[in-house]
Design a protein around this nucleic acid. Structure first.
Lengths: 137, 137
DNA sequence: ATTAACCCTATCGGTTTAATAGGAATTACA
DNA sequence: TGTAATTCCTATTAAACCGATAGGGTTAAT
């Protein structure tokens, strides 16, 4: 299941990408427009800022803005920040690999084989989708 | 994340498919061989029995057996029983659809569009994989 | 009768998720 | 210079879910 955090984060990024003029976009505006609890959204935008996707301007008339062109923001990167590993099991994760306690040999594990296929097909989607694709009509 | 329940369930099904002669396979044997907590595994096999994948024989020398040929057990079906929806959000789920509270129009939701792609690519894997594929060398 | 196995219900501790609370720091602008 | 608007920071919470365990009931082979 996609977490609310990820869902809200993606919607917020899309909103900013669509709206963006020169002025930064305020949390309150995004929250109201996308029906996202404001305080929760604040924490999500913070993590997107800390990971480099967003910049912020403090104080009155402050807000958030994209630090890259939407076409350069890949879903693989966004998903890994918001949702964590893309793979369904750590033993097939490229960025968050962990060995299973049980499996003596990954190559003989039926789950391993299946989950590699799922990972690859999902990666194929995320690698070929950018924020520009999401925000475009 | 794939739940332990699903992981254990898949491993158990694979084990049964590989071992199967005429005699049913015992929970204790699967649990020991695959390093799965036995009581937990019992509950998993129960749900696989109730959903028609497995049959059981009670009493001494009892156990579980497949009710269909492995080549006829599709991952789509197994995953839906063990893990639930294949889609990452209910609003793109084929079998567990739910409308989002927020979204006024699904067709304009960027998350919706992205998650349809992910769903389809994952479905494509599960629809083309059977237990025979998992248990085959 | 005894034993081995599945079957059923309940419970529990831990973790994660989603959200809220309260204020501190910063900036625009009158 | 003061006030309002806004991001920033830390802490807390309620609920849900997950993984596992407990304890026995039922069934069947020998």
């Amino acid at each position: 299941m996609l977490s609310k955090k990820t869902k809200y984060g993606l919607k917020a990024l899309t909103y900013i990408a669509r709206v963006e003029g020169d002025a930064p976009v305020q949390v309150s505006e995004i929250a109201a427009s996308e029906k996202i609890p404001q305080k929760f959204l604040e924490s999500i935008l913070t993590s997107l800022r800390k990971s480099g996707f967003l910049g912020s301007k403090k104080g009155k008339h402050g807000g958030y803005y994209l630090r890259k062109d939407p076409s350069e923001i890949l879903m693989t990167e966004v998903m890994r920040i918001l949702e964590g590993p893309i793979a369904m099991v750590p033993c097939v994760s490229l960025n968050f690999y962990e060995k299973c306690d049980d499996c003596p040999d990954e190559n003989e594990c039926s789950v391993h084989k299946l989950m590699i296929q799922v990972r690859d097909s999902t990666l194929n989607v995320f690698r070929n989708t950018t924020l520009a694709d999401l925000s475009g009509s």
